[in-house]
Design a protein around this nucleic acid. Sequence first.
DNA 1: AAGTGGTCTAGACCACTTG
DNA 2: AAGTGGTCTAGACCACTTT
Lengths: 237, 237
Amino acid sequence: MALYHKVKRELIADIQSGKFLLDKPLPNESDLAARFGISIGTLRRAVDELVSEHVLLRQQGRGTFVGQLDQERFMYQFFKLESEDGIREFPHSELIDFDTARANSEESASLGLRGNPKVFRIKNLLLLQGKPVVFDRITLSCALFPSLNQEQFVQRSGTIYDLFQREFGVTVVGADERTRAILADEEAASVLQIPIGSPVLRVTRIARTFNQQPAELRISIINSQAHELVSNTNPKS
Amino acid sequence: MALYHKVKRELIADIQSGKFLLDKPLPNESDLAARFGISIGTLRRAVDELVSEHVLLRQQGRGTFVGQLDQERFMYQFFKLESEDGIREFPHSELIDFDTARANSEESASLGLRGNPKVFRIKNLLLLQGKPVVFDRITLSCALFPSLNQEQFVQRSGTIYDLFQREFGVTVVGADERTRAILADEEAASVLQIPIGSPVLRVTRIARTFNQQPAELRISIINSQAHELVSNTNPKS
DNA sequence: AAGTGGTCTAGACCACTTG
DNA sequence: AAGTGGTCTAGACCACTTT
């Protein structure tokens, strides 16, 4: 395996262990290279990849920082809803239900759990311009988020993933999503304030931390009447 | 602007002008660097980016090639339908209709055309395991694909984008997509052999060539009963 | 054996931010 | 002015494919 790849893994381990503080820059590139006993070019290559994955953030003249799961990144990477006229807006969040239960088989499989361990089941609503648009059912392993409770969830100041990172050291770096069109059932229709049987998007997301470890299962029911899921496969050019 | 960025643009110009043959390797990296009067590291950086955008393809020991829009890349970048059990399959294609018309305003806006110039309107069906799954309505500017005709479209040997590249020098490098859930109208229901009013995905894609130039407008109606749209935002790690 | 891309080095100098 | 990341160089050596 290439040297820069090993260095990259070591940097990830340092991030996970909390060795780098979230609001302070990492050591500068010369120091890091010296610490690893490699040339600066190789160090830069490892950091380059982590930056391209949004795990690190470089700012010329200031330093290199651990990537925060703040609003901006959430909108960029995980919340890709846009109104027809192309306007994107950070959603307002409303907790509907917070519960613990035993994982069913789908949840266990998605989260990579064995048996039927305890999980949190959270129902949450996202609103845009005051109107309900996304109904999320979130499943989290209690083992991964041991002290999580409803108050902490509701009182969080930033995004949900920011809470995961700051309070539990779980850094969500990406997700797999599967999308289909279905008809709204009674619960979804009621929450989204649309007629039963309306066409809605159903997005199943498995959010992952480093090494493809699953951290969250989220099933989103989206009213796409006034908003669309956007994606692009364009180079920056 | 950085030197490697200029070199990248020159390489793109060479690809567009047909200077590099599709099935032969580019000059090796030392030669290219010498030709541009730059160091090999800088040349590699320009090529690195084009490789990451799938415009070029490097093969150690063999050489660097222009990225072909073949089945493999089509499946990887543009056809992200997967059955529930995770199986992906290259679809069979069936032409439904091939026509020319004046662009409507949506088509003009999407394709960056002025006025209401002539366009091709193509209706096409994609089948998986013999069953209709995707109903595509494709709009192309006649100006960009001057000699295109129905026979050529039907007789093509590879993907549609491969035809664009080989016959018209139009290299599709990416696309913007917007997805929503709707109810199948009469035409879509008939083509997809599902009841009218079934929930389906509606994906509006604008495929682009270099410099974000739009090349194709495609509206896909997808029966997501047995297949899902997949996407992921994961690093390779 | 010859030719290709892949990795790594050890520097120089530039652009940007902060004190 | 000092410190950071950003670009570029000129080479060495390795891994892989082809002849």
